[in-house]
C-alpha cells in the first residue's frame, strides 16, 4: 500500500480499519469455539478407543461373551451379561414406549389438535421431557422394585418413561409434515378415520418416526441412573425379563469406574467402547433412514 501513491479521492478498496479487525477477531473466536467442541469429543473418543480396544478385542470374542468376574480385582473378560442386559432392558423399553408414543402423538395431532385435553397432554409431555433421569429411576424403584424386586423389566419401565415424551414429540412433528390433501383423498375414497391414519398418514410419516424413535433408543441405551435402582448388579447371564437382578453396560461402567483396581478400570473402558459402538450404530441407522427420505424428496 505504501508503494502506490493514493491519489483518488474515493478509494473503494477496503482499508484494515478497527472495524474489520474486530470482524476478524470475532470470526477467529467462532472458529476457536468449533475447535473447543471438537477437542473434548476427540479426546474422549481417543481415550475410549485407546484404553478400551485392547481390553474388548483381546482374545475376541471373550470380552463380549464371558460373564463378569465376581471378584472385581481379578483381571480378564467379560461383559456378556451386561451386553445382554442392555439389549433386554432397552428392547423392552422400546416395545413399551414406541407404540405408546406413536399412539399418543396420533391422538395429539389427528384427533385432539387444539382441544383442551390435547393441550394439557402436550404440555405435560414437555414437562415429562425435563424430568431428570435419576428421578425416573427412583420413581420406578418406589412403584415397581419395592414390590416386585430387581428385574430387567423395572429398568425398562424407567427407560420407557424417559423415551415416551421424546417419541411423542418427534412423532407429532412428523405427522405435521404429512400434507392434508393425502388425508382428504383417503376420506374421499370412503376410508374411515382409523383406516386413513393407519394406511395413509402413518406410512407417509414412518421414516421420520422411525428415525426419531431410534435416536430415543440410542439415548436410552446409555442411561445409567434409572437402571441403578431397578435392575440390580448381577454378574451372571439373566435372560429373564421379569425375574431376578440383571445388569447393563452403563451400570457396569459406573461400578468399575469407581474401583481402584486396574483390572476393573480396564473392564470399564472395554464396556464403554462396547456401549459407544452400540449407540453409534443405532444413531447411524437413524441417520441413514433420515438421509434416504431426504434424498427421495
Amino acid at each position: 500500500m505504501s508503494l502506490a501513491p493514493v491519489t483518488s479521492a474515493i478509494d473503494l478498496a477496503a482499508k484494515p480499519s478497527w472495524r474489520s479487525v474486530k470482524n476478524s477477531i470475532a470470526s477467529g473466536l467462532m472458529a476457536a469455539a468449533v475447535l473447543a467442541v471438537a477437542t473434548p469429543l476427540v479426546l474422549v473418543l481417543a481415550s475410549v478407543i485407546a484404553k478400551g480396544a485392547g481390553v474388548a478385542f483381546h482374545d475376541f470374542p471373550d470380552f463380549f461373551t464371558e460373564t463378569v468376574p465376581i471378584v472385581s480385582r481379578r483381571a480378564g473378560p467379560g461383559m456378556g451379561p451386561a451386553i445382554l442386559g442392555t439389549l433386554l432392558v432397552t428392547g423392552v423399553a422400546t416395545l413399551i414406549a414406541v407404540p405408546l408414543g406413536i399412539l399418543g402423538a396420533i391422538y395429539l395431532h389427528e384427533y385432539g389438535a387444539r382441544q383442551r385435553f390435547a393441550r394439557i397432554v402436550r404440555f405435560m409431555a414437555m414437562v415429562m421431557t425435563g424430568v431428570p433421569s435419576v428421578v425416573m429411576g427412583l420413581f420406578v424403584y418406589v412403584t415397581w422394585t419395592l414390590t416386585f424386586g430387581y428385574s430387567a423389566f423395572g429398568g425398562a419401565l424407567a427407560l420407557a418413561c424417559l423415551m415416551l415424551p421424546v417419541v411423542i414429540g418427534t412423532t407429532e412433528q412428523m405427522l405435521k409434515l404429512v400434507p392434508d390433501h393425502l388425508r382428504e383423498a383417503s376420506f374421499a375414497l370412503g376410508a374411515g378415520k382409523a383406516r386413513t391414519i393407519l394406511s395413509i398418514v402413518v406410512p407417509a410419516a414412518l421414516p421420520g418416526i422411525v428415525s426419531g424413535a431410534l435416536l430415543a433408543v440410542a439415548r436410552a441405551a446409555g442411561e445409567t441412573a434409572p437402571l441403578m435402582f431397578a435392575v440390580g448388579a448381577a454378574t451372571a447371564y439373566n435372560g429373564h425379563v421379569f425375574g431376578g437382578a440383571n445388569t447393563a453396560l452403563s451400570v457396569q461402567i459406573f461400578g468399575n469406574a469407581t474401583s481402584s483396581f486396574a483390572a476393573a478400570q480396564d473392564r470399564a473402558w472395554g464396556a464403554a467402547l462396547t456401549l459407544l459402538m452400540l449407540t453409534f450404530l443405532v444413531t447411524l441407522v437413524a441417520r441413514i433412514v433420515t438421509a434416504r427420505v431426504q434424498s427421495k424428496r
Binding site: G104, E110, V121, M128, F139, V142, L164, I168, G192, A194
Partner: peptide, 30 residues
C-alpha cells in the same frame, strides 16, 4: 368401521393419558 374408528380413537386417547398418569404417579408416590 365406525366401531373400529371409535376403538382406535379410544386407544390413542388412552396412550396420551399415560403421560398424565405417569406424571401424577411420580408426584404422588415420591
Amino acid at each position: 368401521g365406525d366401531g373400529a374408528d371409535r376403538a382406535f380413537r379410544g386407544l390413542a386417547v388412552g396412550a396420551a393419558t399415560v403421560v398424565l398418569v405417569v406424571l401424577g404417579l411420580i408426584a404422588a408416590t415420591m
